[in-house]
Write a protein that binds this DNA or RNA. Structure first.
Lengths: 343, 343
DNA sequence: CTGAAAGCGCTTACAG
DNA sequence: CTGAAAGCGCTTACAG
C-alpha cells in the first residue's frame, strides 16, 4: 500500500539498505548520499511501514497503559490527565499508547489485558492500584514496567509518585497558620500507598506543630473504607463529629472524598469555612466548582505521565540499571473551603 | 521471539498453511486436522504475531480515536466514558485503540494525528467537535470514519449521536409538570451541533406546552460563548436575570455550564430549587455531587462508544454501503436542583 | 561508504 | 483437503 522503501531506493538511485540507514540514522552514509535520499523521502512524504519495522525488529512500538476500572470511574479526572501526559511524551519516541482497564479481581492469566499475552507491547505503565497479582505476573514475564501512584512492596520496580507526605504537610501548615489545631483526617484505607502517605504526612506535620496528641487520637481519624468516594467523606465526617463536635478542620485524602464532606456539612447547616474548614487533595476538574471551592493540593498529573513514559523508555532501551522512584513535587492551592474568599 | 507458526506446524505435523487456515477459520480443513492443530495451539498458548499479520494483510489492526484537547479538558468526564466504550467493543474485534488529541486550530497536514499520515490506523473515531478541515482531510484520504456527537454538514459520514432534542424536551416537560413556565436557556454557541439541537429541543417543547412566547424571547436565552464552561453559566444566568428577574428555571446546555449557574445562584443568595430551578445535560461524574445535586439528562456514553466502534468495523469490513446515523436515546434524571429532595 | 541477500512471521493463491 | 512457495516491507550482518 503506497510507496515503499524500494520505490525510494530506485528513485534515489541507491539500495534499500542505504535508504534504511538514512532513515534510522545508524551506520555511515556519506553526506552527499544522505541528502540525495532525504530529498526523495521528503518529496514523496515516505513513512516506513510500522508493521514491517516491527516484524524485523521484534518490537511492537506500543506501550500498554493499565488502570483499574474502579479508579477510572471514581477518579477519571485524575488518571485521564496522566494518560494524556504519557501520550504526549510517547510522540517523542514514536510509540503508541494502548489503554486497558482491569477489574478489582482478575483471573491470571485470563483476565489480564490482552496486549500482554499477545506480546503487543514493549513496556507497561500501571497507573494507580491494581491487583498485586497482575504486577507480579508482568514482573515475572520481565516486561519493562513503570508504576504511577502505586507501589508493590515485594517487587523492586520503577515508579513515579507524587510527594504525598509533603502535600499533606503543606495543608496542615496552612491550617495551623490560620490558628486552627483540631484537625481531623478522612480517607480510604491503608490499602493504597498514597492514602497511607498522606495520612502519615498529616501525622508528621501535626507532631511538628505540637499537635501530636490529636495526630495520635483516632477519634479524629476515619480510615476505614476500601475505596474513597463522596459517601466515604460523608460518613467519615459524621463519625468524627460524633466524637469531636468542635473539630475545626478536616483534611480529606482526596477531592472526591472532600466533596462528600462538603455535602455533609451543608446538610447539617454548618458554614464552610467559618465553622469548619475542609481540604482535599489532587486538584481535579471539579475541585474549583464545588461549594465552596476546595482548598486542595495540586498534583501535576500530566507531568507524571510524561515522567513515567521517559522512565519506561529508558528502561526499555537501556535495560538493566538500578530501579528508580521519581518523586513529583506538589503544591497547595488555597480556595474558599478553608479561607473566606480564598478563591 | 517465542513460538511461531512454523513451530506449531512442525509439532502438529502439518504445513504452516494449514495452521494459518485453522487460526483464521477461512478455507477448508478437515475436522481431524483442525482438532489436531488446535490442541497444539492451545497447549503452547500460541498467538500469531500481530506485526507479521499486519504486514501481509496490509492492515494495522488499530483504530484512531480523536478528540479535541479543549473537549478533553473541559468535558473529559464525558468523552473518557465514550473512549472506554470503544475500547470495550474493540476487544471483540481484536483491534487496538490509539488516542490522540487535536488542537482547536490545526495545520494540515503537519498538525494532524501522527497515526493518520503514518497509516497506522484502519479507521477513525472522532468524538466531539474538531476542526472541520481535519474531517475533510480524512474524508479525502478515504479513511473509514465515524463521528460521535459531531456532524459536518458538507460531508456525508457515519455518525453516532445522542437524542439531544428529546432530552431537552424531557427537561421542559419535567419543569412544566412542576407548574413552571418562565424557563430560560443557557449554553455555548451554535457552533456545536449538539448545542443547537438541545436549544431547538427546548424551543420545540416550549411551543408544545403553549410557552412559545418565551421560547422566542431572546431575553430568556444566553447563547453567545464559543465554549461551554462554569463561567459561561455564571455570565449567562446573570444576563438572563437582568432582563427577567423572576425567571423560574434555567436549562443549561450541559452539566459543566449548570455548575456555573449553581455557583451564581449561590452568590446572590437565591435558593435552589425553591426560588430557581437549574437543570443540566450529560450526567457526568460530578453531576450528583454539586450543591444541590443536578437534575440532568443521562447520555449513555459507554454505549455510544460501543456503537461507534461497531459501525466503524462494519464500514471497514463491508466497505461501501450507505452512510448512517445512529441516534442513542437519553433519559431524564431528576435530582435536587429542580425538586426538593429529588435525589 | 554502499549493495546483495537473508530473514522477520505470517497469508494466500496455486498445485496437487 | 493439504503443502510448497512467493511475497508483504523492512533491517542487518556480510562482502566488497
Amino acid at each position: 500500500m503506497g510507496i515503499t522503501i524500494k520505490d525510494i531506493a530506485k528513485i534515489a538511485g541507491v539500495s534499500t539498505s542505504t535508504v534504511s540507514l538514512v532513515i534510522s540514522g545508524k551506520g555511515y552514509v556519506s553526506e552527499t548520499t544522505r541528502e540525495k535520499v532525504q530529498v526523495v523521502i521528503d518529496e514523496y512524504n515516505y513513512k516506513p511501514s510500522r508493521s514491517a519495522q516491527q516484524l524485523v525488529s521484534q518490537c511492537s512500538g506500543n506501550i500498554g497503559f493499565i488502570i483499574s476500572d474502579i479508579h477510572l470511574s471514581r477518579s477519571e479526572a485524575f488518571y485521564t490527565r496522566i494518560l494524556l501526559g504519557a501520550e504526549l511524551e510517547a510522540r517523542n519516541y514514536n510509540m503508541y499508547i494502548l489503554l486497558s482497564t482491569v477489574g478489582d479481581k482478575i483471573d491470571i492469566p485470563a483476565g489480564i489485558p490482552r496486549f500482554i499475552n499477545s506480546q503487543d507491547v514493549d513496556g507497561l505503565i500501571i497507573a494507580g492500584s491494581v491487583p498485586v497479582a497482575l504486577v507480579e505476573y508482568v514482573h515475572k514475564l520481565r516486561i519493562p514496567t513503570v508504576l504511577i501512584d502505586f507501589k508493590v512492596s515485594q517487587t523492586n520496580m520503577d515508579a513515579v509518585l507524587m510527594d504525598n507526605r509533603d502535600g499533606a504537610q503543606q495543608i496542615v501548615k496552612h491550617l495551623v497558620d490560620l490558628n486552627i489545631s483540631k484537625i481531623g483526617f478522612v480517607g480510604g484505607s491503608y490499602y493504597h500507598p498514597s492514602i497511607k502517605e498522606r495520612f502519615e504526612g498529616y501525622q508528621t506535620a501535626m507532631v511538628l506543630h505540637g499537635l501530636g496528641a490529636i495526630a495520635q487520637n483516632s477519634d479524629y481519624h476515619y480510615l476505614i473504607e476500601y475505596e474513597t468516594s463522596p459517601e466515604c467523606g460523608q460518613r467519615g465526617l459524621l463519625k468524627i463529629l460524633e466524637k469531636i463536635p468542635d473539630v475545626e478542620a478536616v483534611i480529606c485524602v482526596n477531592d472526591t472524598t472532600a466533596t462528600g464532606c462538603l455535602q455533609y456539612v451543608e446538610s447539617i447547616n454548618k458554614k464552610v469555612p467559618e465553622e469548619i474548614k475542609i481540604a482535599g487533595f489532587d486538584n481535579v476538574n471539579f475541585s474549583a466548582i464545588t461549594h465552596p471551592p476546595l482548598t486542595t493540593v495540586n498534583v501535576p498529573k500530566v507531568q507524571m505521565g510524561v515522567e513515567a513514559l521517559k522512565l519506561l523508555m529508558d528502561r526499555i532501551n537501556n535495560g538493566q540499571q538500578v530501579h528508580q522512584t521519581r518523586l513529583i513535587p506538589v503544591e497547595l492551592i488555597v480556595r474558599g473551603s478553608t479561607v473566606k474568599n480564598g478563591s
